[in-house]
């Protein structure tokens, strides 16, 4: 075992002219938000907001600023605001991302920043979509441990290698960024979608689980894994960096290996 080097104390170099805390740079952003209110109109429209934001602000902060200071009717979901709950997936500049993980300074602030609801799910108001089709697919793959053996008196032990097998797919936060970036899901709402397959993968390859065959049978459906066209939109959209397309390919292989 190697001796660990102690981490040096953090130190911030400040320019000579700055006293106290460093000043955070500000810049102007032009936010274009897709608005939809079924009580007013069946048509969705774009609303523009001009804001002065800080270099440390995220898209979510800009939306908060609009909602709290300009237009209280703007509706969007967010809970933890720190990239864990998966509530605020939206289409920012045409890409699915979490508003709470996207820094404004990383976007092109010389052009309007567009914010739309995620595609493929029915919009309820502004940036809020009906997640029910998404969660229905999720429920159908039985995303819970099924073990037919005797219940152990202590925890179910697993080797580090067995745990590593499905480590990537345990990271899912069910934000729907992957499923709503999938072109097959856009045109065919019946497709299970990447998120459901990822969560099935998490249990199919878990050595403690006994219902892998059942899940493979469910995903061998006409609307299951074979609808995947490996366009990699889901892998690119995932805010947790899950290799979604690879997980789907592994499930395909597992189904083939079981049948042949």
């Amino acid at each position: 075992m190697t001796a660990e080097i102690a981490e040096p104390a953090s130190k911030v170099e400040l320019p000579a002219g700055v006293g106290g805390g460093g000043e955070i740079p500000t810049f102007d952003v032009h936010l274009r938000v897709r608005r939809y209110n079924p009580e007013v109109s069946e048509e969705a429209t774009w609303d523009d907001f001009h804001l002065t934001m800080y270099g440390t602000d995220r898209v979510l902060d800009a939306l908060h600023k609009v909602k709290w200071e300009t237009d209280g009717t703007l509706s969007f979901r967010r809970s933890c605001a720190h990239g864990v709950c998966g509530s605020d997936a939206m289409r920012i500049n045409g890409r699915n991302r979490l508003a709470c993980k996207t820094l404004l300074k990383d976007l092109d602030t010389s052009k309007p920043i567009t914010v739309e609801p995620i595609k493929g799910l029915p919009v309820e108001k502004d940036l809020i979509v009906d997640m029910e089709p998404f969660f229905q697919s999720y429920r159908e793959v039985m995303p819970f441990l099924i073990n037919k053996g005797h219940e152990p008196t202590r925890e179910r032990l697993q080797s580090a290698e067995d745990r590593e097998r499905f480590d990537d797919t345990t990271k899912c936060i069910l934000c729907a960024a992957c499923t709503s970036s999938c072109p097959v899901f856009w045109t065919d709402g019946q497709y299970f979608g990447p998120a459901a397959i990822v969560n099935a993968h998490r249990f199919i390859f878990d050595s403690r689980d006994d219902a892998g065959d059942m899940r493979l049978e469910i995903l061998n459906d006409k609307e299951g894994v074979w609808r995947c066209r490996t366009t990699f939109n889901c892998s690119e959209a995932c805010p947790r960096g899950i290799q979604v397309t690879q997980a789907i390919a592994e499930v395909k292989q597992a189904i083939l290996a079981r049948k042949i």
Binding site: L121, E124, D130, E140, G189, Q190, F192, E223
Partner: peptide
């Protein structure tokens, strides 16, 4: 409070196995 534009229909069933 559904939008009414896209009625979510879940027609998946065991018949297509």
């Amino acid at each position: 409070p559904r939008s009414g534009r896209v009625a979510p229909q879940y027609r998946r069933n065991g018949g297509s196995r």
